[in-house]
Nucleic acid binder design. Structure first.
Lengths: 250, 250
DNA sequence: CGTTTCTGTGTACGTTATACGCAGCACTAG
DNA sequence: CTAGTGCTGCGTATAACGTACACAGAAACG
């Protein structure tokens, strides 16, 4: 924290932590990093990351395109800052209620955050988590496992596993939502259309197992959007539970 | 298959299935779709998807940029075709050895495929699986679960869960590999650098659980690259195993 | 043989990120 | 108080991108 002049800190990470020395020599800056990031988030929320171009953000922030480069090294850095600002701090985690309840709450909170700001899922990941809010979420996830006898290494792996899972499931949900909106139809109808397509394409002789799934009518109607999420979440929680029980027993 | 004139089949899917009517009226085509796709794959394999531009692929295929558009509706479609060609057919799955062994083999095969062709991970997913090889992989995964008493719906969810997991874990592995190569260092060193960075940034008062992980030395050295993959895979397999046992019991 | 329809290609347009240079401002050294 | 210096915002310029469009020519059909 104090060692902001540590040479080892990559530039984009440093920016995310707010350690950017701006010596008071030249004219007063007319913009602020936070303002630019907020402008970027406004654009992304309104029209998706596809609309987040430097010129568009600059217009939203009330400046010229090139002015942004006085605050941000490149577009990637802006995106990373937007991401960090968007995810914010995790809700408080109480491991007293048990690791399973705590991790479940963590996962749901994470999912809601993604669904509320779908553009965050389109920001390309640029490295291991190192921005303040990313670390805060990791800490929260680890806290959920604090009372178990897992090895620290295992806790980290598990949190990453869940983090990955939630992110992916949210991506799928958002993609489906986007596809549905693009054709202006209902979720049920979209699934049914997909089912019909597969019925057309899948030769039962070539893909017998898949044909059985289709014949069972799985793709004729849509589940509630969160049911798929719950299913996978429960499986992984079960698997982790086994390991926790094993470690507790030894 | 035969109903290629089905109006419901999206254009890109139709292309992937090879149903594209090219009536014999005009001059003989000088290129082939397969040739173009192969050229695209050659470019991607050599220099990554970033290098896959229409002009570059055209040059590789020995034609002008715009010639590609006689075979491909847009760049997205080309990428989808490249993807489908790259994943190929899954290895034969023998559920006789048990669902767990079969799913494990499936997951490893899938992972190897991603690692061998890292660019496939950067191709944006454009919809639910519908190309021939994608469906073949799905069928193979479902076959692994064929002898269980799971509901068809559950089988599908489980295969998607694994598919997602493998894809993500491979993405992380490839990203790490790329980062390591970019700085021209070793994996161990890269992890250690990350550990040092976190030691610098993480205030134990603010992120106690995370600080404990770091203090435990988890980030001082790298595991074998596949260990993280195995860990998550085993957890999910365990979780799925619980459900299978439950369904078998009832 | 004309007509039709498809082929490959060149040109042109709109966007993108961003390197560079300039004019002016605010602070610091003298 | 007065240079000087290093920062500010900005306009211009460049290179690359996907692709719409128009055109010349080739092959098949009537």
């Amino acid at each position: 924290m104090e060692l902001d002049s540590g040479i080892g800190v990559p530039a984009n990470i440093a920016a995310a932590w707010g350690l950017r020395e701006r010596p008071g020599k030249g004219p007063k800056p007319g913009l602020t990093l936070d303002g630019i990031v907020a402008a970027g988030i406004r654009v992304a929320a309104a029209d998706g990351i596809g609309a987040v171009s430097m010129s568009r953000v600059a217009a939203e922030a009330g400046a010229s395109t090139m002015a942004l480069y006085r605050y941000v090294r490149a577009k990637d850095e802006l995106l990373e800052l937007m991401m960090d600002a968007a995810i914010g701090d995790p809700p408080p985690i109480a491991p007293d209620a048990g690791w399973r309840a705590a991790l479940t709450a963590w996962a749901w909170a994470c999912r809601e955050l993604y669904l509320a700001q779908p553009w965050t899922l389109r920001v390309p990941i640029s490295g291991p988590p190192a921005t303040p809010h990313q670390l805060a979420w990791m800490d929260a996830g680890l806290t959920a496992l604090a009372d178990t006898r897992l090895r620290e290494e295992e806790k980290l792996s598990i949190v990453l596993l869940f983090s990955m899972y939630v992110r992916n499931e949210a991506t799928v949900a958002v993609d489906m939502q986007a596809a549905v909106e693009a054709v202006d139809t209902s979720l049920d109808e979209a699934i049914a259309t997909y089912g019909k397509l597969l019925r057309l394409l899948v030769d039962p002789a070539r893909f017998p197992a898949l044909a059985r799934v289709i014949e069972a009518g799985v793709l004729d109607r849509a589940d509630e959007p969160y049911e798929e999420f719950v299913f996978g979440l429960e499986r992984i929680l079960d698997g982790v539970g086994l390991l926790i029980a094993q470690r507790a027993g030894s």
